Computed example of a mutant assay.
Amino acid sequence: MIRSIFAVNTIVYLQMPVKQQRKLDHCLNCGKPLPERENYCPNCGQENKDEKVPVGIFIEELLTSLFSFDGRFLQTLAAFFFQPGKLTKSFNEGHRKKYTHPIRLYLVFSLFYFFMIGFLIPKDFFDRILNAGQPTNMPTYQEIIKQQSGEPGPADSARIEEALRKAVEIQSEHFSNESPEDSSTYRQNYSWKALRFLSIDPAVSTEKFGHALDSSAYTFDVGLSLQKKRDLVAHSNLFLIQVAKNLPLMMLLLLPFFAFFIHLLYANRSVFYMENLILGFHLHAFAYAIYGIVILLMFFGGIQSGWFIVGAFVLVTSYAYLALLKIYRQHWFKTLIKFWILGGLYLAVLLSGMAGELYLSLLLL
């Protein structure tokens, strides 16, 4: 029975039209001539498929190559970092065994970048930013801030609890005695630290916290309920973690928009949409690699210059411009105009995506 099924399948396979078993008479990767019924190149092993990349072929190659990793990766890095557009051009021309698959390259460097963000940026980064340059008129706060560098012992915990109790008492007393006419003084006294203490104190009602928030420099109104605003202040660091967790998915969802804008700008070049999407994967992977290295150097190398970040941005944008020049081969000025249009469109989508992602993270807090 099994032999019969195998024989029938073999006959059906042999009777398939030649057109379905081979696409070209030569290998796109190494150029070796292929026999009539050869579906794979006997020289390099690449499957005999056309140079264009329909969605079905793209997904098929993705599934077969995404989870494999070999020595081609090191060979890919040289072209990836020093030859803008080469990987995209080679892939779209059919040289798919020579370099690492674009999706796999994207995943490697996106994981590297977001790992750098999640691992190296401190969990209290949000508080550090908002507390920077905010003086306080309460010496008790300074006693608490000194404990941020490590885990307090039992004696230190008791002192922190006592300082916290006194701080809340001072703030509550100040809140009840403050008149509306003293709003300027009111705004100065309610620093971010004070708002944090009020937000986590169950003795402070939500209405009182709302008045304190409105009287501070951190008031905001984005359609959230007062309780949600209190939750944001109380769990601001958790909010930052939530944003960081959603960021990779958001960027992946924005990639098709980036490819669509390129497709519109180069509609007269008769290029498949998937070829533009491949370029998007390569450009985003390069951006992740450079910005991830910058974060690494800033935290471990001690480089704190703002010019270092500006230089990374210039490098990434120059790389993208040179890649467009190499792939679409238009005049440098015409390419520059299209590059600016592409940057403006993608920036608008990116800001909209960030706003939506922040709002969604607020709702899920």
Rank of each mutant, 00 (worst) to 15 (best):
S184E: 13
A203H: 12
W332H: 07
N43P: 00
G311C: 03
N237R: 12
I144F: 06
Q171V: 11
R72H: 07
L62P: 00
S65I: 00
Q304P: 00
M274F: 06
G153F: 05
A285W: 01
N177E: 14
W340D: 00
S4Q: 06
E151N: 09
E93S: 13
N246C: 03
A7L: 09
Q242Y: 08
G356A: 10
G306F: 12
P180S: 06
R3E: 10
L296R: 04
C30I: 09
T185Q: 10
V53Q: 09
Y40H: 14
S184V: 12
T335D: 03
Y319E: 01
A217V: 08
L232S: 05
F82V: 06
L14P: 00
Q142S: 15
K208P: 02
F67W: 13
K23S: 15
Q21V: 11
F126I: 13
L351H: 00
S90E: 12
K49F: 09
L255D: 03
I144W: 03
F80G: 02
L264W: 04
L34R: 08
F261H: 04
T76D: 06
L350I: 01
H284L: 06
L107M: 15
F258D: 05
E47N: 01
F73A: 07
E275V: 00
R128K: 15
I11D: 02
I117L: 15
L350E: 07
N39I: 04
I57Y: 02
I278Y: 06
L296A: 14
Q134I: 03
Y190N: 12
I341M: 07
L28D: 02
A234G: 13
R165V: 10
M251Q: 10
S270V: 03
G344P: 00
N39T: 11
G356W: 11
G94H: 05
L264C: 07
